[in-house]
């Protein structure tokens, strides 16, 4: 039986752009360019490599987000994913990680899966907890923060990987179905080829709304969120410091500054 891989991706504001909050203190997605989160490219890449190794595999790339989030799906399809699912609904605006994970879990179940692959975190929210929450919601093993990953035995098989933690490096193993997340150390993501970009235009993108997933509007959105942001303030610019040009005494001058600040 074909190995069904679902890759969860997020459409995020460009981290190199001028990111800010909208009036309702949600992430402003209108006034800044968006793109497929860089950290999710690693997830797509590992899905493609696992699919290459498997006898038979199908990769579905899944996102929850506004109309523009299709760009993220298109990018993943042009890298080589087979099809896409886009959950889009006006009621989703302002959804927090609990609501998003609920929507993703239902969409993953509806799509059918043996392996879910996520990036290690989003580049906008940066929580890094969604893969663990998905595993909890789907009630399948969590095999997360892997810098190496492989699948043996197809859809009925096992997933193995290496998790590099603060104090130790661990070899992990779990039976499928499972939820995996991969780090930016898992391997450089490929660039879409021209052929891939052309092919992506013909790949199917399924559109789903909350009704299709039996989710009520009050379970998601800003009102349904289990957290509330009360204020967001731009960090004051750091006061301009002293900058000297090294004329042979730069190291000593720096030492004098550190001594003055009581670091030495």
């Amino acid at each position: 039986m074909s190995l069904r891989i679902v890759v969860c991706v997020k459409y995020v504001p460009d981290a190199t752009g001028d990111r800010h909050f909208a009036d309702d203190l949600t992430v402003d997605r209108d006034d800044v360019d968006g793109l497929l989160s860089e950290l999710d490219e690693y997830a797509v890449e590992q899905a493609l490599q696992i699919a290459d190794e498997a006898d038979d595999a199908e990769i579905t790339v899944l996102t929850v987000g506004p109309e523009d989030a299709k760009d993220a799906l298109r990018k993943a399809l042009s890298m080589g994913a087979d099809k896409a699912v886009h959950v889009e609904d006006d009621d989703l605006h302002g959804t927090d990680v609990m609501g998003t994970s609920l929507v993703l879990a239902k969409a993953i179940e509806k799509t059918g899966y043996d392996l879910v692959i996520c990036g290690m975190a989003s580049t906008d929210g940066t929580m890094g907890v969604l893969p663990a929450i998905l595993a909890e919601r789907l009630n399948v093993p969590q095999v997360t923060l892997l810098s190496e990953v492989s699948v043996e035995g197809g859809a009925e098989g096992t997933v193995k990987g290496r998790r590099d933690g603060d104090t130790a490096s661990e070899q992990l193993e779990a039976a499928l179905p499972a939820v995996v997340s991969v780090t930016d150390q898992s391997g450089e993501a490929r660039y879409p080829s021209f052929k891939g970009i052309m092919a992506a235009k013909k790949k199917p993108v399924e559109a789903l709304e909350l009704d299709d997933l039996d989710i009520d509007a009050d379970e998601v959105g800003l009102e349904g969120a289990w957290t509330a942001v009360d204020s967001a303030a731009e960090r004051p610019a750091r006061t301009a410091g002293t900058i000297v040009k090294d004329e042979g005494e730069g190291g000593k001058q720096l030492a004098a500054f550190l001594a003055e600040q009581k670091f030495i």
């Binding site: 981290a15 990111r19 800010h20 909050f21 203190l25 906008d124 969120a225 289990w226 957290t227 509330a228 942001v229 009360d230 204020s231 967001a232 303030a233 731009e234 960090r235």
Partner: peptide, 12 residues
């Protein structure tokens, strides 16, 4: 946003 903003939040 790369520490360019500071937010205050609660759990509801």
């Amino acid at each position: 946003f790369a520490a360019s903003f500071t937010t205050k939040s609660r759990i509801t």
